[in-house]
Design a binder for these strands. Structure first.
Lengths: 123, 123
DNA sequence: ATTCGTTATATCCGATGGAATATAACGAAG
DNA sequence: CTTCGTTATATTCCATCGGATATAACGAAT
């Protein structure tokens, strides 16, 4: 999910996550597919969850991030607003900048990490 | 919990959080108090949880972060290793650098945020 | 030997989150 | 008016997480 290995960045609003890697990817996929459900399918996420994330996004910001239409041709759909696109773009840029800023630190840190014997969750 | 308003940074090992704001704070408190349970009390965290986090930290890195002693004077205690101190220091430095690198972006983003009507969790 | 506070560990339980499922509403296309 | 795929919403179920609690082990100090 994280675009940069070893780094996860989230932007908070009042200590609650406003946008992070997951929402950014979701909005990107909605933009690509024109549908919340299609984006959810691609992320192997339940429609309900994806819809909740979209709801949270729209509630977090002044301008809507995703606008939806119900019924009609192909049942409806979802469109990412210009602001939504800008939001994702900005967030990706932040990931880039942050990653650059601490790249050497991350390398050092990862050199201190134990590789194999990490108890991973079962499939 | 996040030291910088609007930013949360986590360092991942194989997509699992190796260190983040919570563990960093916990290690800092263990260093200050010399005890896992005292640190947990200060963070209003159950001892079990704190102990699990310490276990995860020690499992994530080659060198131990916290070493513990059982029994004896005052029942035992926990000591943050030199590496542990360095780890926290490095992580804090990463937060600083990342925060600086994206400060203007965060300002822009927060200007787009809806302030009051965010459904906050109940106490 | 007793005391004491801590680490270590197990067990139980409640809250939370998310998946799965079902259903309704919708509106353009045919 | 029927069809169709989607949004929207409620309901149910289950896994996971963490808090609460209890207990054992420990070892220095008394």
């Amino acid at each position: 999910m994280a675009r940069y290995p070893g780094l996860m960045l989230r932007i908070l609003a009042d200590d609650h996550p406003a946008i992070g890697p997951g929402k950014a990817q979701l909005v990107g996929l909605i933009d690509a597919t024109g549908s919340i459900s299609a984006a959810a399918r691609e992320m192997r996420m339940s429609y309900r969850r994806a819809w909740q994330l979209v709801e949270a996004l729209n509630a977090s910001f002044i301008e809507p991030v995703v606008v939806t239409a119900v019924g009609g041709k192909r049942g409806g759909g979802a469109v990412v607003t210009a602001f939504g696109r800008e939001l994702v773009k900005q967030f990706r840029a932040m990931e880039d900048k942050a990653s650059q800023a601490i790249a050497t630190d991350i390398e050092w840190l990862q050199r201190q990490m134990r590789k194999p014997p990490r108890p991973q969750r079962r499939k």
